[in-house]
Design a protein around this nucleic acid. Structure first.
Lengths: 348, 348
DNA sequence: TTGAATAGTGTTATCGATAACAAAATGCAG
DNA sequence: CTGCATTTTGTTATCGATAACACTATTCAA
């Protein structure tokens, strides 16, 4: 048997935060014991634990989770993908998510898809390579590639905000089509007949598209249809409503007059309301306005906005909750309708 | 030499996504070659690379970055800590950060401190255990423990939004004290003398505290002082201004009358403006209003808000940029004043 | 033709933890 | 005091990649 002398090599430089084995040496115990102390798993004698903890403290040791996660093939990171941060709705959802994850000791890793399916797909792949404990994505429409990756993974997957009968795994949201219908019926019941629409790109924002479809369907059932509509391919926000409301009104055919406008969401509606206030268009006498979301700003307006409250924080919280529960071996519902709620307001 | 027969053990279950070595086997090359193909580092013959890529494709292999980061002791994750997501300012900063990080191939891991130093400290520790490539924190005030951890790490650290002469590492922000002074001078120049203040908790929100201090200092220089002030310990937002404006006005001593109010930020100011509109208090004739941030909503109001624009997106972008540049071996400035800009508006 | 430089690929040790099993220490009934 | 159950602690292999170096095949100037 030939004896191989191990080649002497320059050791790779260490990270500086110390390692388990350094702690173990300093504490005169095995690495496993230190590991057990840190994870509060298995039994460790009180005396030993106290001693090890003290050494850890003294050394200022910070465990390396990369190594931990690799060895145990389990991470406390959870991937979350949302379309944007500029629409206040998503930070609110995110708040619900992080609140729930915090409680359970998980950490959100956030990706912004910019309403772009390809970006979403590449984000999902990049995030999966960190082997997260679970993943939460927005809406139920994804590229083929993304769907495949999400189906294959064994980690819990939640599609949130929107609903579908056939989720990849789990799904928490609300029925946007129904929300659109409900608002249409409300406006019709209030006597409005010439209704316009102003909103963002309906393809990009699938949920807004569903609301619009539902709205039109309900109008049709009432023998009506959208009088004038304008969609703009720019980020949804107050500015959109403020700057494009005049264009919508200008688009109304000669001799007709709108008596109400439905918006893709509250931000746009609030912008439009600002426009009306600035132009002395009285609400709702001259023109009724209706939004969607139930944003704080809409309700803080001098004339509170007629809208539909989506339970965003709750949806986020529940989504995270389902992932956490699944990881604990429980079996949360596959499809959850978080519902919504019409806010009468005073703009319609 | 005693021969040890390796004990047969149940192998740990694999993750299912395949491994480098499986790919290597399937492609009939060494693991290193596959690794090189994936990282586009070192040379690989075109023929070999194409072949390996095909195998990777066929197997649907997703590399395990936990292992990669551990072995190379380098990650593409960047820790970002912000106080809150509910204040739209932070999502905007975050947008700047993620935009810049995206370009450079990094990923933000976000933690929410809730304006709480202890939470911040424990978040920092938890995040450091993932050995992020860098870390961005908000403001310049941190618990002792957190400061220590940040000082010790070799990764780039950016403190953003606020300024300090002695940053832990780097610092990008604006001078809030100066911003407060500037607004005070502006109001005084406009002839206002009885100025009130309404805002959120000044201890929690250190930057708002500095603005207030600067505001008061400049008033003092003009021989004035804050006539009436009210701070409320609840999340800053439109609701705060909308609901507490009446309390501020009620607090004004008999016989006096406020002619202007300074707010901790635009959200609060907008809320107050809503209150005024609802109560038929004319702006600025009866009461002038001034905020801070330069939010879109403030400028969309029928009477645009007098305020100071902070370059939030830019601050976020720059912060991320500095980290990226440092990681590339460059040497970005240690302290960067991103400045601000007074927006005249029409509420003062 | 030759030898040095370069290109391409492979081998071995290692990153820093945890899983699974093994062994030692301890407690306690009889 | 003995022997078995229970606690507590240790040993070894492994997680899935990359670093550092070693080696082989080409290329090309002299």
């Amino acid at each position: 048997m030939s004896e191989k002398k191990p080649v002497k090599r320059r050791t790779r430089r260490s990270q500086g935060s110390g390692t388990l084995s350094e702690v173990a040496q300093a504490a005169q115990v095995s690495e496993m014991t230190v590991s057990r102390v840190l994870r509060r798993k298995d039994k460790v004698a009180d005396k030993t634990r106290d001693h090890v903890l003290k050494v850890i403290q003294d050394l200022g040791y910070v465990p390396n989770r990369l190594a931990g996660a690799l060895a145990s093939s389990s991470s406390n990171q959870l991937a979350v993908i949302i379309p944007s941060l500029r629409n206040i709705v998503f930070p609110e959802v995110l708040s619900g998510i992080t609140d729930r994850l915090d409680e359970a000791g998980y950490q959100a890793v956030i990706g912004i898809s910019d309403y772009n399916q390809e970006r979403e797909a590449s984000l999902i792949e990049a995030m999966m390579s960190w082997r997260p404990a679970g993943i939460i994505v927005t809406n139920t429409r994804h590229s083929e590639q993304a769907t495949k990756v999400l189906r294959v993974t064994k980690s819990p997957v939640v599609e949130m905000m929107d609903l579908t009968g056939s989720p990849i795994d789990m799904c928490v949201g609300l029925d946007h089509h129904k929300a659109g219908r409900e608002m249409a019926r409300h406006l019709v019941a209030k006597g409005y007949r010439n209704i316009g629409y102003l909103g963002c790109d309906l393809i990009k924002d699938a949920a807004a598209g569903k609301r619009y479809a539902g709205f039109c369907d309900a109008l049709r059932d009432a023998g009506l249809c959208i009088a004038t509509s304008l969609t703009v391919d720019e980020p949804s926000g107050v500015g959109l409503g403020r700057h494009h409301m005049s264009a919508l009104l200008a688009k109304v055919p000669q001799g007709q007059k709108l008596d109400a406008v439905y918006f893709s969401n509250d931000a746009v509606a609030v912008g439009a309301q600002m426009y009306c206030m600035a132009e002395d268009i009285r609400t709702p006498e001259d023109l009724a306005l209706a939004g969607f979301s139930g944003l704080e700003i809409g309700q803080a307006m001098p004339i509170p906005l007629t809208t539909i409250r989506s339970k965003r924080y709750h949806v986020g919280w529940l989504s995270a909750d389902y992932v956490v529960r699944r990881l604990r071996g429980e079996d949360p519902p596959r499809v959850t309708d978080a519902g919504f709620e019409l806010i009468e307001g005073a703009t319609a």
